[in-house]
């Protein structure tokens, strides 16, 4: 068991981050090369000011028309993304492991807060799953990839929650948790989670197009 634990928390983490970093560089680099080759008429309009204008306005909850018209989804989306990113980075257990290995640490969330945030992520995933099953338009759109990334996002939190509360077999659960976390990290560049990499650029482009060509806001 310890061998497995050491493997998933050691070499496998390196592998996952290597896939994340090199995979992301590869994806972004090849996408940029493709854009330069094939999308010159779009790239030509990229503009810093309009890019940031669009990104900024879309980061504000309920500012864009889409957010306003989907209020529940908006709240869930913001809660989900904030908790998804903040919880693992600010979790004391994670920070302690890093401190033990590298001697660096940073501010951590109180465990009770992190626990609530974990539950929120799981609840948000349940909400997303519910929409995919029950809301007609979303059901029509849903593909296997969508279920895959939902599972990839939910599993580290479900297993993390179970491990923290020592439900079921703790050791198995911790290993499952680390494994699920590794899968999520490695999956970023190569699944639809790649919107983490690309959405900033698609947003920037449409912001540039609306600002520069259409002279209209895009939110």
């Amino acid at each position: 068991m310890y061998d497995i634990y050491n493997f998933v928390t050691g070499p496998l983490v390196w592998v996952s981050f290597a896939i994340l970093i090199f995979g992301s560089i590869y994806r972004l680099g090849s996408m940029y090369a493709l854009a330069k080759k094939k999308d010159a008429v779009s790239l030509a309009y990229m503009d810093w000011k309009f890019s940031f204008r669009s990104i900024f306005n879309w980061l504000i909850p309920f500012k864009a028309l889409g957010w306003k018209k989907n209020p529940v989804l908006t709240v869930v989306t913001y809660v989900f993304h904030i908790c998804l990113l903040a919880t693992p980075i600010l979790l004391s257990a994670h920070i302690i492991m890093i401190e033990e290995s590298w001697g660096v640490s940073w501010w951590n969330l109180p465990d009770a807060t992190a626990d609530i945030m974990t539950i929120l992520v799981i609840a948000c995933c349940a909400f997303f799953a519910g929409r995919r099953l029950l809301q007609k338009d979303v059901r029509f759109l849903t593909t296997g990839q969508d279920w895959l990334i939902l599972a990839i996002a939910a599993l580290p939190f479900i297993t993390g929650f179970l491990a923290y509360h020592q439900l079921f077999n703790y050791q198995v659960m911790v290993i499952a948790h680390v494994l699920a976390g590794n899968i999520m990290i490695a999956a970023i560049p190569f699944t639809r989670i790649s919107h983490m990499l690309f959405a900033v650029f698609t947003r920037a482009y449409i912001g540039s197009e609306f600002g520069g060509i259409r002279r209209a806001k895009d939110w």
Partner: peptide
């Protein structure tokens, strides 16, 4: 021949969230 990163990125990162649904007058 005629499409590139734009189409590729759009096709890949559309999260099938259905937020655009209410936008369309056809819908």
């Amino acid at each position: 021949g005629e499409t590139g990163a734009r189409l590729k990125a759009y096709a890949e990162i559309c999260l099938r969230c259905g937020m655009c649904t209410e936008a369309c007058h056809f819908y």
